[in-house]
Simulated scan of single mutants.
Amino acid sequence: MTIVPDDARQGASHLYRTMRDFVLSVDDTLPGKFEITKEGIVLDMMSPSGRHELTALRLRKRLEKVMPEEFAAHTGEPNVENEPEGIMRRPDLMVIAEADMDIDGSFDPRTLLAAVEVVSRSNPDNDWVGKVRDYALIGVPVYAIFDPRTGTGAVLTDIHSTPDGPRYATRKDFVYGEDVTIADWAISTQDLPRYESGSGKGR
C-alpha cells in the first residue's frame, strides 16, 4: 500500500510524540541526557565533568557581563523543540531574551539568539555533526561550539537553503585564547578548561 504524504506526516508526528513522551518520562529517572534528533533518540550516558560544567559557567558569566539586562545566557531546562521537524534538544547554554522565556513548555528555537554547546568527550559527533544539522533545521540563527578536547571551536551562522534542507553557510573557527563573537557580543576564550588527555572520563 502506498502511503500518501499527509499520512506520512501524521505517522512521523505520532512517532515523534511517542519518543517525546518517553524522553520526558525518563528524563529524571535514568542516567544520562536524552535528546530527539532527526535520526531518533540520542543518549549521552556520561555525567558532565567538572571541566564541561566550568566551561559552560565561564561562558555564561562572560556573555551576561556584556549583554543588556533583558537578555540571558541560560543553562538548564526547558528543552528547545520543533515538533514539525521532530527535534527536541537541550543546549548547554541558550542566549535568549528574558521575555521569550516567560512561556509554558519548551522554548521555540526561533526565539533563541544563539545555542552554545561544550563538546562531550563521550559523544563529540553529537555536537559537531548532529547538532550542526539540527540547529540549522529548526532555525537557531547562531550555533557556537567549544571543544575542551582540542582547545578549539567554531561559530556557525547564516542559515541558507540547500537540497538537504537549511544549513549554516558561514563557519568561523577559533582557538582558545582568541576572542569570539556570539550573536552580537564578543567574549574572551582565555582560561577555558581543557579535558585531560588520555583520561577518557566525563563529558
Rank of each mutant, 00 (worst) to 15 (best):
Val95Ala: 01
Tyr135Asp: 09
Gln190His: 14
Phe71Asp: 05
Arg110Thr: 15
Glu83Ser: 06
Lys33Leu: 12
Ala186Thr: 15
Gly86Asn: 06
Ile182Gln: 10
Leu43Gly: 03
Val42His: 14
Leu30His: 08
His160Phe: 09
Arg62Gln: 06
Met1Trp: 10
Lys38Val: 12
Arg51Gln: 13
Pro68Asp: 11
Gly151Ile: 01
Gly198Gln: 04
Asn82Cys: 15
Val180His: 04
Thr37Leu: 06
Val119Ile: 08
Thr2Tyr: 05
Ser49Arg: 08
Thr18Cys: 11
Thr157Phe: 00
Thr162Phe: 01
Val118Gly: 10
Arg51Ser: 12
Leu113His: 13
Leu93Val: 05
Pro109Ser: 08
Val140Trp: 09
Met94Gln: 07
Ser188Arg: 08
Arg58Cys: 04
Ala136Gly: 13
Arg121Asp: 04
Ile103Glu: 06
Ser106Leu: 02
Val23Thr: 09
Ala8Thr: 12
Gly202Val: 02
Gly40Trp: 01
Ala186Phe: 02
Thr75Cys: 12
Asp158Thr: 07
Phe107Val: 03
Thr189Lys: 03
Gly202Asn: 08
Glu117Ser: 10
Thr2Leu: 07
Lys172Val: 15
Thr29Ala: 13
Thr29Leu: 15
Asn123Arg: 14
Ile36Lys: 03
Ile187Asn: 10
Ser199Arg: 13
Val142Asn: 08
Thr37Asn: 04
Thr111Glu: 07
Arg110Leu: 12
Thr75Leu: 12
Glu98Gly: 02
Ala72Phe: 07
Phe34Tyr: 15
Ile182Gly: 04
Val42Phe: 13
Leu57Cys: 06
Asp134Gly: 10
Lys65Glu: 11
Ser120Pro: 00
Leu30Gln: 13
Met19Cys: 08
Tyr176Ala: 05
Trp185Lys: 04
Arg9Thr: 11
Pro5Val: 08
Gly200Cys: 03
Asp108Asn: 14
Pro193Phe: 01
Pro78Glu: 09
Pro84Lys: 10
Pro163Tyr: 13
Ile103Gly: 03
Gly198Ser: 01
Ala186Val: 07
Gly202Gln: 12
Lys33Tyr: 05
Ala12Pro: 00
Val66His: 04
Ala73His: 04
Ile182Thr: 08
Glu98Ile: 06
Arg121His: 08
Ala144Leu: 06
Leu24Ala: 11
Thr162Tyr: 02
His14Met: 09
Leu57Tyr: 14
Phe146Trp: 03
Ile87Pro: 00
Asn123Cys: 05
Glu81Phe: 00
Gly165Cys: 04
Tyr176Thr: 02
Ala73Asn: 03
Val129Arg: 11
Met67Tyr: 03
Thr150Leu: 14
Asp127Glu: 08
Tyr195Val: 02
Pro193Ile: 01
Gln190Ser: 12
Asp147Trp: 00
Met1Gly: 14
Val180Glu: 05
Arg89Val: 05
